[in-house]
Amino acid sequence: MRKFITKLLSLDLIVGSLKLTKEGIKNAHTNERVEVETFAEALSRLGVVGDANIKDFLESKYKSLRKIFYMHVLCLASIILYMCYQNIYQDASVKMMLLYLPMLFIFMVNAITYSFRCYQIRIRKTGAEIGGRLKDFIHLPSEWFPLKIK
């Protein structure tokens, strides 16, 4: 159960992001140039070699990320529907509605994160290669909901 909750809230990703942010701030103060890791280097770091292995690995990773994305979207939709139900039929207070905002925010951010990772797998580029921006991803609404890897 603990593993499920950790996976659902993406606590390991949050801790990893905080560590990377701390490391990035430390590197920014020392003015060291950080090397950009390419997609091929990331795959070799993960120990995936050979065209067949890479294709299988990326397909399985894409499917698992897509599944987690839709799980977050389902949770997000469920919370919104429950909020509407409480507001319409149970006359919930504003304080009660405000309690759901952090959960909505967490599920929305995680859904966007997993969708962006699926996009990275589809175009086979890391975030640093894309430029570290979500500009291309945001301007392509067809990529927001991952369907299948091409």
Rank of each mutant, 00 (worst) to 15 (best):
V36P: 07
V36G: 04
V36S: 10
E37N: 08
E37G: 11
T38Y: 04
F39N: 08
F39S: 03
A40Q: 08
A40D: 12
E41T: 00
E41H: 00
A42W: 07
A42Y: 06
A42K: 10
L43G: 04
S44M: 06
L46Y: 05
G47I: 03
G47A: 08
V48W: 09
V48R: 08
D51A: 11
D51L: 14
D51F: 04
D51G: 14
A52T: 15
A52Q: 14
N53K: 03
K55T: 15
D56K: 11
D56T: 04
D56H: 12
F57Y: 08
F57I: 06
L58I: 03
S60F: 15
S60Y: 10
S60I: 13
K61D: 09
Y62F: 14
K63R: 03
L65G: 10
R66S: 12
I68L: 13
I68T: 10
F69W: 01
Y70P: 06
Y70N: 05
Y70I: 11
Y70Q: 02
Y70L: 09
M71E: 07
M71T: 15
M71V: 09
H72T: 07
L74G: 13
L74T: 14
L74M: 15
C75P: 11
C75I: 11
A77L: 11
A77F: 05
I79P: 14
I80N: 02
I80P: 01
L81G: 11
Y82S: 12
Y82P: 01
M83Q: 12
M83R: 08
M83K: 06
C84F: 15
C84M: 15
Q86G: 13
N87V: 06
I88R: 05
I88S: 03
Y89M: 09
S93F: 05
S93P: 00
V94M: 06
V94I: 11
K95T: 04
M96G: 14
M97N: 14
M97T: 14
M97G: 01
L98S: 00
L98Y: 04
L99W: 11
L99D: 15
Y100P: 05
Y100D: 03
Y100H: 01
Y100K: 01
Y100A: 03
L101K: 04
L101V: 11
L101D: 02
M103N: 07
F105C: 15
F105A: 15
I106M: 05
M108Y: 09
V109M: 08
V109T: 09
A111F: 04
I112C: 00
T113V: 02
Y114K: 05
S115V: 07
F116H: 13
F116C: 02
F116L: 14
R117T: 12
R117D: 06
C118Y: 06
C118K: 03
Y119S: 10
Y119A: 13
Y119E: 11
Q120V: 08
I123N: 10
I123V: 15
I123D: 14
I123G: 13
R124S: 04
R124N: 00
K125F: 05
T126S: 09
G127N: 10
A128P: 07
E129L: 01
E129P: 02
I130D: 10
G131C: 06
G131E: 03
G131R: 05
G132P: 04
G132C: 06
G132I: 02
G132A: 00
R133W: 12
L134T: 08
L134C: 08
